[in-house]
Design a protein around this nucleic acid. Structure first.
Length: 416
DNA sequence: TCTGGGGTCCTAGGACCC
DNA sequence: TCTGGGGTCCTAGGACCC
């Protein structure tokens, strides 16, 4: 098994089309340009913390001439697809874990050739996409991932755990909280019982005791660290069981009509997502909240769920259900910061459970198909519900988004 | 002035079925 | 004296991931 991680993926994507950024530290901001969600190595070295609010590090940004980019997920998603396509040449089975990580099945490669094979793949991806990778090789997903993390600091960015001695050394120098699946809560618990390193956990902890206190999840992590595969290799990802669309507003919102516009828009996006995976949803949850960072202001968070008579992927039905849920929980007088729509109880579009009394209108399916086709061709929201508003003053801010170089003809890179 | 947006899995408990 | 032994579906909350 081999684990791959793209290095500082979002920052690397920005650099592919902006060679002038190669010599400068780069940070990428989350939606609304609020906080930092990706940093180049140089930005990390300067001491910009992950997740930090931009305004709190403004002085460092100015002092070191750090390039600041708004998030451009259309670009990152497309670059990710390109990286994965190159990787498919180096394995018969690819498990795409996230936008910037994947597992390759290396069953056909002997341990002695792991490092050379990984270096070949790394060079091909760099040459053909411009994206640098770190690669770790191990006999379980958890070990491969640990090796890849370690590879970020090694020259060549490749680490192969080819012998039990390699594994033992790496585990011994890895603090328990750096193991995949051990978060703050489990790390605290394990340390309180004297297990400080990944090695302690893998070889000194009693499996029955782990099962009792950390459930089967903890038991699997321990076996994985011992080199025993417990996590499945996933080449076909099943449809999402839950789909969420939410954004914080570009400015504080008090008008009920503006909240409804945002809810209708997010419900429309969520509906598009479930149609894209050929599914329908039966339950619609709507939530709204004030800004929890504004501690002096009155706070309110609430969610409500509407269950539909029959599951659907129809934008009009889902948007209307979301607004109904909203009307049950909305209270006038608060300054709102965010709303979101979550679709659950998702099932395949066929076979479909109908209601006893209403026959579905086939024209609605056709309408959705046409809307998706138009928006796919001419860009998101080219056709949308009137209830999503006209001026949309509440929309998020993105002051410095790079062009969508690879997915929009009118934003393609110019040379010369 | 200013603080992201998505997901998954596991367990326990309730309601219900034969 | 004694009162079964399996299941499913759903939800909420916790923990974790990128």
């Amino acid at each position: 098994l081999r684990w791959l991680t793209c290095n500082n993926f979002y920052a690397s994507c920005e650099r592919v089309f902006r060679p002038d950024l190669a010599q400068r530290p780069v940070v990428v901001l989350g939606n609304n340009d609020g906080n930092i969600i990706a940093r180049s190595n140089e930005a990390k070295a300067i001491g910009i913390p992950m997740g930090e609010a931009l305004y709190l590090v403004k002085q460092l940004v100015n002092k070191h001439r750090i390039a600041v980019c708004s998030a451009n997920f259309a670009l990152y998603g497309d670059m990710s697809n390109r990286v994965m396509e190159v990787l498919r040449r180096y394995t018969s089975r690819l498990d795409v874990y996230s936008i910037d990580e994947a597992f390759l099945d290396l069953a056909h490669v002997p341990a002695s050739a792991w490092a050379a094979h990984a270096t070949d793949a790394r060079e091909a991806v760099l040459r053909w996409t411009g994206i640098p990778l770190s690669i770790g090789v191990g006999t379980s997903k958890t070990l491969a991932k640990l090796a890849a993390e370690h590879a970020k600091e090694q020259p060549g960015n490749v680490v192969a755990l080819s012998s039990t001695e390699d594994v033992r050394t790496l585990l011994a120098e890895t603090p328990i909280e750096e193991v995949w699946g051990i978060g703050p809560s489990r790390a605290k618990f394990l340390k309180a019982h004297g297990f400080e390193s990944a090695y302690d956990f893998a070889h000194r902890a009693d499996p029955r005791w782990i099962q009792r206190h950390l459930t089967v999840v903890g038991a699997r992590i321990q076996l994985e660290l011992q080199g025993v595969t417990c996590l499945p290799f996933v080449t076909e990802h099943p449809a999402k069981k839950q789909v969420c669309c939410s954004r914080s507003f570009g400015q504080p919102v008090t008008e009920q009509s503006h909240l409804k516009e945002a809810i209708a828009l997010y419900a429309s996006w969520a509906a598009e997502k479930i149609r894209a995976q050929d599914t329908i949803a039966r339950a619609v949850t709507e939530f709204l909240s004030t800004n929890s960072f504004q501690k002096h202001q009155p706070q309110y968070y609430k969610s409500a769920t509407v269950t539909l008579q029959a599951p659907t992927c129809d934008t009009l039905e889902l948007a209307s259900a979301a607004v109904r849920a909203f009307e049950r929980i909305y209270i006038q007088g608060y300054v709102y910061h965010k709303v979101g729509v979550i679709l659950t109880r998702i099932t395949p579009a066929e076979p479909r459970q109908l209601t006893l009394l209403d026959a579905p209108d086939p024209r609605r399916n056709e309408l959705m198909r046409v809307i998706d086709e138009i928006n796919g061709k001419f860009g998101r929201d080219t056709v949308r519900l009137g209830s999503t508003g006209t001026d949309q003053l509440w929309r998020m801010k993105q002051r410095a988004r790079s062009p969508r170089y690879t997915t929009r003809w009118d934003e393609i890179a110019h040379v010369g």
